[in-house]
Simulated assay, not measured.
Amino acid sequence: MTTQQKSFSKAENEVMPEFRRRINEAESTEDVKKFFTYTIRELFDKIFPDGAQLNLDEIRLQPEESPGYWISESVLGREDVTGVWSMSDLPNILERLAQVAGNRHAHLMKNPQRSESKIRM
């Protein structure tokens, strides 16, 4: 018996344009982290319309770590999330979003002038 993997690429494609726009306009590493978290929360709302609301402290960007993000065990342990997480492309989607955000985060870390000039205004 084979198990079929569920794909959430449609939901990913729905959030990606706005996510890329926000990330590209981010002027600080904190903005990047915030936009990442908000987008993952939006993605979860699309995938789990009957629940699995994600609190902002349950997911965060971790660009220096693999896979690029952290998600709380309390979320992964939820009954509605567990099956989806292990039998879908959701972890890969989060990794792709973390990659985009991580690239912008790294760029802002190397070139802090823009965010510093914004702070001084």
Score class of each variant (00 low, 15 high):
N111P: 05
S74F: 02
V75L: 02
I23K: 00
E65H: 11
S88Y: 05
P17H: 01
V81H: 10
I93P: 04
P63S: 00
H107L: 14
Q5N: 07
Q53D: 13
G51K: 08
N24G: 09
A52D: 02
L94P: 04
T29Y: 03
E14M: 10
P17Y: 01
I47L: 02
Q5S: 10
F8M: 03
S72P: 06
I71V: 15
A101V: 01
A11D: 02
D80Q: 14
P112F: 05
S117A: 11
P91S: 09
A101E: 04
T82G: 07
K33D: 11
S28W: 02
L97M: 12
Q53I: 07
L108W: 00
P63C: 03
R78C: 02
E18F: 03
N103M: 10
F48Y: 14
S74T: 15
S66K: 10
R60N: 15
D57R: 09
M16Y: 08
E79W: 09
L61Q: 09
R60L: 12
P112L: 00
F48W: 13
T3R: 12
D80A: 14
L94N: 11
V32F: 09
S117L: 13
N103P: 00
N111T: 10
L56F: 13
K10I: 07
E58Q: 15
T2P: 15
N55G: 13
P49N: 08
R41A: 14
F44I: 09
P112Q: 11
W70N: 06
A98S: 12
G51H: 06
V84G: 04
I59E: 03
V84I: 13
E12D: 11
T39Y: 00
P67G: 03
M16N: 03
S115P: 03
M16V: 04
G51W: 08
A52N: 08
E65S: 12
V84N: 04
F36R: 06
Q62T: 15
Q99L: 14
P63F: 01
L97H: 04
I40L: 05
S7T: 08
E42I: 12
N13A: 11
G77Y: 06
A52Q: 04
V75D: 08
W70L: 12
S88T: 02
A106D: 13
A11Q: 15
G77V: 10
Y38M: 12
I71P: 00
K34Q: 15
A52T: 05
M1R: 02
A11K: 11
A52G: 12
N13R: 13
A26K: 01
P67N: 04
R41I: 14
F36V: 06
I71C: 07
T2C: 02
H105P: 00
L94Y: 03
E12C: 06
I40Y: 06
K33M: 07
P49C: 08
Q113N: 12
E95M: 12
T29V: 14
L108K: 05
G51F: 06
E25W: 02
L61V: 09
K110Q: 14
L56P: 10
T37Y: 00
I23W: 00
R78Y: 01
R120E: 06
V84F: 01
V75H: 08
M16S: 00
K33E: 14
E30F: 12
L97I: 03
L54E: 04
E14F: 11
G77P: 03
K6M: 10
W70H: 12
K6D: 07
E27H: 06
E30K: 14
Q53K: 14
W85A: 07
S115K: 04
L108F: 01
Y69G: 09
N24K: 03
V15D: 05
R60S: 15
V100S: 04
